[in-house]
């Protein structure tokens, strides 16, 4: 069996594949033709072992055999003879036939276009202008929308505050109804004018109503008892002018 160098083997297979494809297109028995050619090539290079046949030797052999197009010539059996025969070929010139196409696609040519300095500057300028415009639009929309949003939230807090006061008033009325029309007694300590301890928890179950949500100085939430002691004042602050002076 003939041994080939890898490149020679690859070239021969490509050559035979091309012949096979052309022969098949013409309705010929591609397998028989390729088998004959393979055998012919092996005879030409000799059935040697140990020394692989290189591609130069293969080129010489294929030059005598002909290109795949010549071998698989169409229409008449002698169609290939209609092609001019180079004198050198008949004289044993070993011009290599054209390399059959490889199974792998040819590498794509990458065309790199270089932009001019002016082109780069213009592109950068356009990018910067577009970026500025976008940032400006975003900032304008935010400036318009944010105050409105804050105002809406504050209005909601105030509404909740009014609702809390209503609730407190209702609880005071309920207390008075149960205590012969008397309201809860107040503390006589300045700054701690409390009556909420008299309401909690029987009449005042939800201590959060004691704080106006709009109050920025509202303390953090504690237990209900502490909350009642410390923050009933905030509710009463609506009715007093000063922590020191007591009731207005």
């Amino acid at each position: 069996m003939t041994e080939w160098t890898p490149d020679a083997s690859e070239y021969l297979e490509g050559y035979l594949n091309q012949v096979s494809a052309l022969a098949r297109n013409q309705g010929d028995d591609a397998e028989e033709i390729v088998s004959g050619l393979r055998d012919h090539v092996a005879h030409e290079v000799g059935f040697t072992t140990g020394v692989p046949v290189n591609i130069d030797t293969l080129f010489e052999v294929l030059a005598a055999i002909g290109t795949p197009e010549q071998v698989a010539s169409s229409e008449t059996p002698l169609g290939s003879l209609s092609q001019p025969v180079a004198p050198a070929a008949s004289a044993g010139y070993a011009a290599p036939p054209p390399l059959p196409p490889s199974s792998a696609p040819p590498p794509q040519r990458v065309i790199v276009k270089h932009r001019s300095w002016a082109g780069c500057a213009v592109a950068s300028l356009i990018f910067v202008v577009v970026a500025i415009v976008l940032v400006s639009i975003t900032a304008t929309i935010a400036a318009i929308a944010l105050p409105n949003l804050l105002r809406v939230r504050e209005l909601a807090r105030l509404a909740a505050c009014v609702q809390n006061e209503k609730q407190m008033g209702l609880e005071l009325f309920i207390y008075a109804n149960k205590h012969e029309g008397l309201y809860p007694s107040l503390s006589n300590q300045a700054g701690r004018l409390m009556f909420s301890s008299n309401l909690y928890p029987e009449f005042l179950s939800d201590t959060s109503v004691l704080v106006c949500p709009s109050d920025k100085n509202a303390p953090t939430v504690k237990s209900d008892e502490e909350f009642v002691d410390d923050h009933a004042y905030y509710y009463l602050s609506h009715a007093i002018t000063s922590e020191v002076e007591g009731l207005a």
């Binding site: 022969a23 033709i33 004959g36 010539s73 059996p77 002698l78 025969v85």
Partner: peptide, 14 residues
Amino acid sequence: VITEGTIYPLLSRL
């Protein structure tokens, strides 16, 4: 003046 490879298709057709 033949191109040797062309004989094989001819033999196949014959």
